[in-house]
Amino acid sequence: METLSFEYRGGRSVASPPPSVLVGVVGSGNLEVLVEPAPLGGICRVEIQTAAVGFGTTWQAVLDDVFARHPLADVRISINDVGATPAVVSLRLDQALDAFAGGFQP
């Protein structure tokens, strides 16, 4: 197990966010993403618990892209991962953040 943490600045707060959004399941090759509003002084914080050790740079790259698509502030994103591929991680995060920001409901 490895714990990773990332922070992004410069995003925008969602006006009236839902209390939380949960997407995905903690199963092999999959992950769950929990998104919650949090008073973080403008920061978007991502906390990851992953079964696949040593993929910090891959996570960094995937999350940079996700933040570019969803520049959010005052958000806490919590992830439990069982070795999902970058494509699956991106998909789940897009689903979760779209729902959080008022897009479609997954």
Partner: peptide, 17 residues
């Protein structure tokens, strides 16, 4: 985040529910 207190020591990911 009422997760299992036993999985982490066995290197197994927990689920939030």
């Amino acid at each position: 985040r009422m997760v299992s207190p036993h999985l982490r020591q066995l290197d197994t990911p927990a689920a939030f529910d």
